[in-house]
Amino acid sequence: MVSVKDVSRAMRGMCFPADKKTCVEWAKAHNATAEVVQALEHMPANRFRNMSEIWYMIG
């Protein structure tokens, strides 16, 4: 399971709101681990208003 800390590090500087595709692309462009990218790819295709919503979806 991916940690909140790892996701936060990968998403640092992300502008919200953002959709799932944008979040995944941002993480990849900012050298996120494969585990973080996979967790983001498995989220529902929502529009996220902030990091808290992403943390909630990842679990």
Score class of each variant (00 low, 15 high):
V2N: 06
V2W: 07
V2T: 07
V2Q: 10
V2R: 08
S3D: 08
S3W: 06
K5V: 04
K5E: 03
K5R: 12
K5P: 01
K5C: 03
V7K: 03
S8D: 08
S8I: 13
R9Q: 12
R9L: 15
A10H: 06
A10T: 08
A10I: 01
M11W: 11
M11D: 12
R12P: 06
R12C: 15
R12I: 11
G13W: 11
G13F: 11
G13D: 13
G13C: 15
C15E: 12
C15T: 11
C15I: 12
C15N: 11
C15R: 11
F16T: 05
F16H: 06
P17D: 07
A18P: 03
D19H: 08
D19V: 02
D19Q: 04
D19K: 06
K20L: 04
K20W: 01
K20P: 00
K20H: 07
K21T: 15
K21I: 14
K21F: 12
T22C: 11
T22E: 14
T22Y: 10
T22D: 09
C23F: 05
C23L: 14
V24K: 14
V24L: 15
V24P: 06
E25D: 09
E25S: 15
E25F: 12
E25G: 09
W26A: 09
W26Q: 09
W26N: 05
A27F: 07
A27E: 05
A27Y: 03
A27C: 08
A27Q: 10
A27N: 10
K28F: 04
K28A: 04
A29P: 01
H30G: 11
H30V: 14
H30A: 14
H30L: 14
N31C: 13
N31Q: 15
N31G: 15
N31E: 15
A32Y: 07
A32T: 03
T33W: 08
T33R: 13
T33N: 07
A34R: 08
A34K: 15
E35F: 00
E35S: 02
V36L: 04
V36K: 03
V36H: 02
V36R: 01
V37G: 01
V37Y: 01
V37K: 02
A39I: 00
A39W: 00
A39T: 00
A39E: 00
A39P: 00
A39H: 00
L40R: 10
L40V: 09
L40W: 04
L40K: 10
E41G: 09
E41K: 10
H42T: 14
M43G: 05
P44H: 03
A45C: 12
A45G: 11
A45M: 14
A45T: 12
N46W: 06
R47V: 09
R47N: 04
R47F: 01
F48I: 02
F48S: 02
F48P: 00
F48N: 00
R49P: 00
R49F: 05
R49S: 02
N50F: 04
N50E: 10
N50V: 13
M51T: 07
M51P: 02
M51K: 09
S52F: 03
E53W: 09
E53C: 06
E53G: 14
E53M: 14
I54W: 02
I54M: 02
I54C: 05
W55G: 04
W55M: 03
W55C: 05
W55R: 02
W55N: 06
Y56K: 08
M57D: 05
M57T: 09
I58F: 02
I58E: 05
I58V: 14
G59T: 07
G59L: 07
